[in-house]
């Protein structure tokens, strides 16, 4: 068998809190195993070494909020054979995409002592709005097992298993009792993309949708039930407008919360 050259990996940060990169560092023994399988050529969170591309895989954290980032992400795409976005910022624009629904000039003038220092676009947009993305890892932060699974699949030369189910399917497979039905706890699980392993409901908390919407979520119907569970207008408005506020499936829920309860 021909000797296979060691695949190269790069990790990139755009507008984000670094939490998803930390998830990679938190992989502990898996991280050691990974460093035995790939050459990490660019990962500023972990090392000041920054070798030029091309790279076999790029993990991209963060959203695009500056003109400079708009340029850089195109370069990263060119340098990368496979591009994987990691986390809600990269896949949906993140919590900073709340600016998309407001006036950035107003924020800039109110929040910062010297507004002229702030160089920013009017919107925070996901990576896929700028370049082609091969795989998306959802979540705020991403799930460590999913990250390792995607990298393992890449190394084995197969498609990763990233099902587009609801959180409910993971919750039920874990044998959890539904918090909404049995406790009356509001939960976004039915409209939220799987991948976390139903982490919050496992601890009897309602899902708050950090993995973003499933494809074509029926938020209108869920909102009616969230009202039955005691959520009011302000909470409903807020619950869909956090880490995935600009994801189309959740952004459209804003109009649906205005509907009077039935």
């Amino acid at each position: 068998m021909a000797e296979r050259s060691t695949p190269t990996l790069a990790v990139w940060k755009f507008t984000s809190c670094d939490g998803c990169q930390l998830t990679l560092l938190d992989c502990e023994e898996d991280l050691l195993a990974l460093t035995g399988q790939v050459e990490i050529r660019h990962f500023l969170e972990a090392s000041s070494r920054a070798d030029p591309g091309p790279y076999d895989v790029s993990l991209v954290e963060g959203s695009i909020t500056t003109a400079e980032q708009e340029r850089l992400i195109r370069q990263v795409r060119e340098w990368s054979r496979v591009l994987v976005t990691i986390g809600a910022c990269a896949t949906a624009g993140g919590v900073q995409a709340l600016r998309n629904f407001a006036d950035v000039e107003e924020f800039r003038s109110v929040v910062y002592a010297t507004p002229s220092y702030v160089d920013t676009l009017a919107t925070s947009t996901p990576i896929a709005a700028h370049v082609r993305v091969d795989y998306e890892l959802r979540g705020c932060p991403i799930d460590r097992r999913q990250l390792v699974a995607v990298l393992s699949a890449f190394l084995a030369g197969r498609e990763p298993d990233l099902p587009d189910d609801s959180v409910c399917t993971e919750c039920k497979r874990r044998g959890n009792t539904c918090v909404m039905v049995a406790d009356g706890t509001p939960c976004l699980g039915p409209v939220t993309h799987a991948g976390c392993g139903a982490l919050c409901p496992t601890y009897r908390r309602g899902c708050y949708g950090c993995f973003g919407p499933v494809r074509a979520p029926n938020t209108r119907s869920l909102i009616r039930q969230l009202r039955v569970c005691g959520m009011g207008d302000a909470e409903l408005d807020r619950v869909f407008h956090t880490f995935n506020a600009a994801a189309p499936g959740f952004a459209s829920a804003r109009g649906e919360t205005d509907e009077p309860s039935q």
């Binding site: 409910c168 497979r173 039915p190 029926n218 119907s221």
Partner: peptide, 13 residues
């Protein structure tokens, strides 16, 4: 379908 969440709970239980 206007009510169904397509969440899959009915099939799981």
């Amino acid at each position: 379908a206007s009510r169904c969440l397509a969440c899959g709970n009915c099939t799981m239980v």
